[in-house]
Amino acid sequence: MLEVLTQPFMIKALIAVILSGSASALIGVYMVLRGLSSIGAAIAHVALAGAAISLLTGLDPVVGALILSLVFALLSGYGEEKGEVKADMTIGVLFGFSTAVAALAISLSSPYAASAWRFLIGDVLGVTDNELLVLAVMSLAVIGVITLFKMEFKYITFDPEGSSAMGLNVRFYRYLLLVLTAVSMVVNLRVVGSILSVAFIAIPAVVAYQFSHSFEEMGKISFLTILISSILGFLVSVMLNLPTSAVVGVILSVGYLISIKLSVKRRKCKSIIQCFRVVREHHIK
């Protein structure tokens, strides 16, 4: 059993999960705090539609997914900016439209239906060398840009109005976040699939939120959450021969339940250690 894990394709798969998870978990911090994590989910389904259309037309699925999700990410940003449509409406329309297009494209391309299914729930063990390279470049680019502009993203999330009063180009960073979300969702498509992308973008950030007093803390805890869940989920999925994405999703959800139970926020204590002390004293009483 354990020998299997040292096989090159296993190691590649694990790297792919960790890379795509890390990019989503970091993007998720900003998207969740700005109340836009469902935009991420909607964009993931647009990416699915893009990939499905590509399969039908013979285009590279990654290219198709990237183009379509970038277009829609920018459109949703435009809608948000104009303030004429609520984010929720954009999400509803994006979801409906993209899922319909994806379903159509998948059913039309019946000989390829199997490969389209892979984009729904991901197929991490089937990742080829070339694919891994592309995924790695894309996720590292996302992680790199977030690290580079972490101050700017923090400022526009906390106080967009004040940020622009201080001369920050809020509009640029808002669109940049959407572009990064689109890229990250395309990476996810191949690894965890569109359905579970939302778990990757939202849950680690929400778990981290329970324990964080700063963006830095939240980023670190979000990253750790996805790292632990990915490794654990990967091992369990290989052992039980289940889809990796689904197992990681279940582990993340369990992690969320535990995090609410232990939440620092609810007790307003300063650190996790202090919180444990509070809990213990509570039990002694």
């Binding site: 705090l33 101050m151 923090k154 400022y155 906390f158 106080d159 004040g162 940020s163 201080m166 001369g167 920050l168 939120y209 964080s212 007093h213 700063s214 963006f215 803390e217 939240m218």
Partner: peptide, 14 residues
């Protein structure tokens, strides 16, 4: 989640 020091420093860093 933002620390007070981050907010005050933002006035200069932004």
């Amino acid at each position: 989640p933002v620390l007070v020091k981050d907010i005050i420093l933002m006035g200069r860093l932004a």
